[in-house]
């Protein structure tokens, strides 16, 4: 048990180190973006003095290193700075803290991701197990063909097909409002959920199937069969417990995608998520928001991979019960 805590602690620490390196990358990549924010906000007619004053107000005139230092120490205190937008040449500062802008969008994204995961992960597991159980049957071929088709089609294409097919009775615009109830929200995001489910199910299902089928060739499965185990018992009791590690990795990968990669779907359904926020902020050169989004994406990846590793450790008796 103590070993387990040690392993988790080590992984967490490594996760933080990775996150730190990623923050460096994000910051330097963004500072390389072409264009000048002051110019973009104030327009071509702004004088040199107003531009300079504007820059110094935002700290943009400080050297790169000290800007990074200010930013990262802020982040560690939970302060992602304030958005650039809302400032103007008139001197009124209407800008809002990044967190305040991001929070509702992040909540939306996480909500959509959780709902999709709740549908897609069990569906993929069940389909994967069934296709492994009835390998090479018509059902197996059908399920594989169908999921491969949906993963091969571009997301926006799937989304529009769904809109055409179900637009009559399901909402095609997911314009959720903060004061809406959960049921109303669920109704609004039904089409985005279906779209995303279609996109991610194939990957997880095929990995589940492959992992199980791979194990079915092992001697201990033949042994189980020769001691009279039924096919269901073989899959659920003998193969599945040994297949979690690869399955968990793929699930983690797809969950991460649900948080960081759904911008196209958000745009099609005009859903106010964090992907859309990030793209908009890049357009308006709202650097603090872009950086915060990127950092959250990185943290999502790292955390989910950490969880997948943990599942791998917890389901591997060799690691859990050393000699």
């Amino acid at each position: 048990m103590l070993r387990l805590v040690e392993v988790i602690g080590k992984r967490l620490l490594l996760g933080f180190v990775t996150l730190f390196i990623v923050s460096l990358l994000i910051f330097s990549a963004i500072s390389l973006l072409p264009g000048d924010f002051a110019q973009a906000v104030l327009g071509q007619s702004a004088t040199e003095e107003t531009l300079a004053a504007f820059r110094s107000g935002l700290g943009l005139d400080k050297p790169l290193f000290s800007r990074y230092f200010d930013w990262i120490t802020g982040v560690m205190r939970g302060d992602f700075g304030s958005s650039f937008s809302g400032r103007n040449s008139s001197g009124f500062d209407l800008s809002r803290p990044v967190l305040e802008i991001m929070a509702p969008k992040l909540r939306n994204t996480v909500f959509l991701a959780l709902v999709t995961a709740a549908v897609a992960v069990p569906l993929a597991l069940v389909l994967g197990l069934l296709t492994a159980l009835f390998r090479n049957s018509i059902f197996d071929r059908g399920a594989n063909g169908l999921t491969l088709t949906t993963i091969s089609a571009p997301e926006f294409f799937l989304a529009y097909i769904l809109i055409i097919a179900f637009g009559g009775f399901l909402p095609t615009i997911a314009n959720v409002k903060p004061d809406m109830g959960v049921l109303e929200r669920l109704r609004l995001i039904s089409l985005p959920t279906i779209t995303l489910t279609l996109v991610i199910v194939a990957h997880m299902m095929r990995m589940t199937r492959a992992a199980i089928i791979n194990l079915l060739a092992s001697p201990y499965i033949e042994m189980a069969r020769l001691s009279g185990a039924s096919q269901t018992e073989i899959i659920f009791r003998h193969a599945l417990p040994n297949a979690w590690a690869p399955i968990a990795t793929v699930i983690a990968f797809n969950l991460a995608y649900l948080v960081v990669g759904v911008v196209v779907v958000e745009v099609v359904f005009t859903y106010e998520g964090i992907g859309k926020l990030m793209v908009d902020s890049v357009g308006s050169r709202d650097i603090p928001v872009v950086q915060a989004c990127a950092l959250i994406f990185a943290a999502t990846y790292i955390l989910l991979n950490l969880l997948a590793d943990l599942v791998g450790i917890l389901t591997n008796p060799r690691l859990l019960h050393p000699r």
Binding site: S218, P219, E222, G228, P317
Partner: peptide, 25 residues
Amino acid sequence: DLRSIWGTRISYVAQSAAASFNPAH
């Protein structure tokens, strides 16, 4: 019907015990 005989009336001992035990149980 064979399953009711396998493992109970006829049992099997495999060559490589290390590979023939389920590592998870």
